[in-house]
Design a protein around this nucleic acid. Sequence first.
DNA 1: TACACAATGTTATATTATAACAATTAACAC
DNA 2: GTGTTAATTGTTATAATATAACATTGTGTA
Lengths: 132, 132
Amino acid sequence: MLKQETLSKNQQIVLDYIEKVNEPIKAYSILHNVQKKGIKAPLQVYRALDKLVEIGKIHKIESRNAFVACKNSNCQISKATAFSICEGCEEVSEISDSKLSKYLKNFQDKAGMKFNKYNLEFFGLCKKCSIK
Amino acid sequence: MLKQETLSKNQQIVLDYIEKVNEPIKAYSILHNVQKKGIKAPLQVYRALDKLVEIGKIHKIESRNAFVACKNSNCQISKATAFSICEGCEEVSEISDSKLSKYLKNFQDKAGMKFNKYNLEFFGLCKKCSIK
DNA sequence: TACACAATGTTATATTATAACAATTAACAC
DNA sequence: GTGTTAATTGTTATAATATAACATTGTGTA
Ligand SMILES: [Zn+2]
Ligand SMILES: [Zn+2]
Ligand SMILES: [Zn+2]
Ligand SMILES: [Zn+2]
């Protein structure tokens, strides 16, 4: 079978919603908001999320248990992700910095382990929150 | 009041256990294993974990919802952490690389956000798992 | 002593995620 | 088209992770 090129119905419903809200959103919040589209159970959401993460359409913000649409057309495979997270307003943005990604892709730890994936989360205060 | 210098009873019990097992361990697994010491409820474990993370004695591996003792005497404050995680055997080790930490501490995103903390998780296969 | 704050104990509940199994749909080879 | 395989869906139940709320006790300090 060829590699999937189109999303399934539930995958598309979930992705549409995540792209629309345009900020990190939690699985059960997605569920509540797509029930009018016919998705009834958590598992239907989680299965769609798994696939969307796998193909790089969305990313999981691990420290927040939340999901966000990919804003970086270069990371189609979800294997090299970096985010900045404001601890004041919880605003999250995906970092797209070629020097950073190059540095991290080439990083070798002392045990010589070869990495195929990384996730980096920076925390701080955004401009708005830091002047409060 | 002076800054806490000694750990409380429950904090010490939980830390002792995490240091003993010497690998990432989950909160409810900790609970089961410290019940003989008198800790009875999840909240007692989570409160101890929160404090231990705060003071840098342990770290949370976000992608695994697990906790591990700090192996890097330099990161007493839990604000700059990096781990390598084997996706085969789930072995986790804390990365201590001064060049990496310097690079990340000084990283500035395009929005000029000032970071005070980061967490980086690398994924791959350890030597043992990669020859299988 | 009185005060402030940290830590504890306890019960209940909220939140996040997966197991198990049956049924349906989509893609492909022939 | 038919048969085959894998992906997807639907459904119920349950597991795993984490916090709310509130009363109580301990600890350092003035
Ligand atoms: Zn991305
Ligand atoms: Zn902010
Ligand atoms: Zn550490
Ligand atoms: Zn391994």
